[in-house]
Design a protein around this nucleic acid. Sequence first.
RNA 1: GGGGAGGUGGCUGAGUGGCCGAAAGCGCCCGCCUGCUAAGCGGGUGACGGGGCAUAACCUCGUCCGAGGGUUCGAAUCCCUCCCUUCCCGCCA
Length: 423
Amino acid sequence: MLSLNFIRANSELVRQGVRRKGEQAPIEEILELDRQHRQLVGEEEGLRAELNSSSARVGALARVGDPAAALLRDSLGDLKARVQEVQLRRKGHEDRLQELLLLVPNVPHESVPDGTSDDDNITVRTWGAQPQFDFEPQTHFDLGETIGIFDFERAVKISGSRFAMLRGEGARLERALSTLMLDIATRERGYSEVAPPYMVNRNCMVGTANLPKFEEDAFHVVEGDRFLIPTAEVPVTNMYREEILDAESLPIRHVAWTPCWRSEAGAPGRDTRGYIRMHQFSKVELVKFVRPEDSLTELEALVADSESVLQALGLHYRVRLMCAGDMGFAQWKKYDIDAWAPGMGRYLEVSSCSAFGDFQARRAGIRFRSANAKPEYVHTLNGSALALPRTFDCLIETYQTGQGTVRVPDRLQPYMGGATEIS
RNA sequence: GGGGAGGUGGCUGAGUGGCCGAAAGCGCCCGCCUGCUAAGCGGGUGACGGGGCAUAACCUCGUCCGAGGGUUCGAAUCCCUCCCUUCCCGCCA
């Protein structure tokens, strides 16, 4: 959420940011409501100050037994009614203003390029090269069915479309990948591991800006009005909601492995084949809380942390700076990392690394305080390191041998009980 | 599921209708003292918003004692609903 002060003082910048993202936001209505609201606040507070001092006088008179107390007391009913009337109007404005503010997207950082679609994203670097094969590389779903590590039919039978099931060495491979990713984050990149709840309350979803605008993207658990997390970003970012952190504790870096659930409401018909776009998948997520001035350097470091996993696995990838129109509602600046899937002959997005500025912190009330200073909102960031299914796909497509087997990369072998190949 | 206790500032914790934005302690900041450090002494120290004002300092007003309603001239304090914590019993592992 943007602060009202910010919108008031930078309304043109905000309008432009909304436009650059290709979104709509009720900026004019907010500015007008804000004007009216502040006027009502002034009016109400004047009346209330009068009522407060009169009430105090009633108390003082009553204490010394002055009969004027009763007289004054009885005369205050009218004033009270006026206070209540103005208060009601002020609250109406306030609630409406709050609702509207939650609908204003974050403004892209100035270093974010213009653009409206994926075509306008900028590849900032690549690592490795597309592997060459002396045979026709298979897709992960063909290969995986052959080896017997996927069982899509039974997943559909027990849960429906967009659910997948791994079996045998496949299940083990995904578990091994998860553990490797967690180990890299905790032992090599300085993150502290957390294992958060997989269901969160409504406030958390609002805090990370998954609500109110995107309720149809999430799975809702009616009992208790909770939501299945669409990403570990939600519980982990909200760990410190409504807290004032000690400045010395920043930056805070957490990593979490969790399942993620998404309704994929906006993607019917997309990526229906393969282990790519599931209602449930798992992901290792990095989340950071940093001082505002460190935000963008921390973003670059975050991307490097995610890349280190792909490098450890020896997978070719590219890093893309997202254009304004292809960024999400809450992002300030964002990079995607796409790994190469040679069987499919395309890149798969395995990570999305975002800086949010204080947009989420403001919604969630996450602040920090330096000695002798006023509390300030932290900046939040997060990125996948990495999404499991697509990393899994790229890995088996990259390391297929042509003999119906898949070589296990060196770094992963200790996590696979020393196995060098799966078949 | 039944019954009891409770949710107060960065933290601990007093406060049952006005003199309470809130004692005391801890922490933190400033100063004094002191070879250094610690201790000791003195003082200061909540958040958010409106207005004045340069979106500084400062002044002023208002709101905030889990959340939301209500009673009252006046609520941390009384009433109602909800959330959470905790204890005992029951239930299930």
